[in-house]
């Protein structure tokens, strides 16, 4: 493998994200581990969106729906495991993370399939708006449905378990999230290089040409959208475990906007774009927040400058122009 500049930067990023929590642990500053975990999880969610947005060119303004569904899967399963009440058809809840992950990914994927099936009939601005509308539907449902806390959200009193380790220890939980993130990045790289991924990217660039070689762009996109939803849903489950809490704010349209922001900040369509973006975003948030109560103003300003003048995002600045395809 030739180590080009972007690959090198990617390796440095991955190593840095791994090193910071160990350093923080050694220095007795566990809060920085929490911050790094947050970066890893947001990067995972954005990696999911990057499949649809970066590869497929599908600007989904509704991925918060999948993020929130994943979160609620974690919250609801844990709540039932805690109370001992059966869930559906006599199935009980669970506190096992890996079961929660599978359920979260499958459920988000299925909802993604349903939303995608209708939304992908449209394109352009219509697609952006219809995905937003579906996310709003889920949001209002979560707020007004009384069974699982409504607007108050749902607390997970003790973080869910993973066989053989103590997940309450910040460093352990970080490592779990880190490994899941690496796996998702691996999946992204695999898909990008696969026949399916090539078709997805080709459909973005020239729909007509793809159709003429006998591939149905609609099916390719729908599959891509569902996988994208599943990965973001998995991130939502981890996010709920990080905060030990899930609420409708995970489903709000600001969340959808933030996920897009992460990708653009890092660099659209790039493998490590979401990670670079998430790191930058969380650091901005933390550093600016420490400086001024008006941090949102400056965050907006920085975003604006990035969109207008630094279109490749952080990786674009560091590694030069992306090679597409």
């Amino acid at each position: 493998m030739i180590l080009n500049r972007e690959t090198l930067i990617n390796l440095v990023l991955a190593a840095l994200l791994l090193a910071v929590p160990f350093a923080a642990d050694a220095l007795g500053q566990p809060f920085y581990i929490t911050l790094a975990t947050r970066i890893a999880i947001l990067a995972l969610a954005a990696t999911g969106l990057n499949l649809a947005l970066g590869l497929g060119g599908l600007v989904s303004f509704g991925h918060a729906a999948f993020f929130g569904i994943g979160g609620y899967v974690a919250g609801i399963l844990a709540a039932h495991a805690f109370s001992g009440e059966p869930l559906l058809f006599g199935l009980s809840g669970t506190k096992q993370m890996w079961v929660i992950w599978i359920v979260a990914a499958i459920l988000s994927g299925l909802v993604g399939l349903a939303i995608g099936a209708i939304s992908l009939r449209t394109s352009g601005v219509y697609f952006i708006m219809i995905t937003l509308a579906f996310a709003q539907m889920v949001y209002y449902f979560a707020i007004s449905w009384p069974a699982y806390g409504g607007e108050d959200g749902l607390s997970i009193l003790v973080r869910n378990q993973f066989p053989g380790v103590n997940t309450m220890r910040p460093l352990t939980f970080f490592l779990i999230c880190y490994v899941v993130l690496l796996a998702a990045l691996g999946l992204f790289a695999l898909i990008r290089a696969s026949r399916f991924g090539t078709a997805l990217q080709a459909a973005r660039q020239n729909e007509v040409r793809v159709a003429t070689v006998g591939i149905q762009p609609y099916r390719i996109r729908l599959t891509g959208f569902a996988i994208s939803a599943a990965v973001t849903g998995l991130a939502g489950a981890l996010f709920a475990d990080l905060n030990r809490f899930v609420s409708p704010s995970m489903l709000s349209w600001h969340m959808s906007g933030e996920l897009i922001v992460l990708i653009i900040l890092g660099g659209t369509g790039r493998l490590f774009g979401p990670l670079a973006g998430a790191a930058l975003y969380v650091i901005f948030e933390y550093a600016l927040g420490g400086l001024t109560e008006r941090w949102q103003f400056f965050l907006g300003l920085i975003l604006l400058v990035v969109v207008l003048f630094a279109r490749g995002g952080l990786l674009g600045l560091l590694a030069g122009k992306a090679k597409h395809g």
Partner: peptide, 30 residues
């Protein structure tokens, strides 16, 4: 701002105007 966005794709427009919302809201509160 907006004038620079006409030739961009919808993604850039969404993002730039999202940034404007943050600035308008916090600026008004200021």
């Amino acid at each position: 701002v907006i004038r620079r966005l006409y030739d961009r794709d919808h993604l850039d427009q969404v993002l730039a105007t999202f940034a404007l919302i943050l600035m308008f809201s916090e600026g008004t509160r200021w």
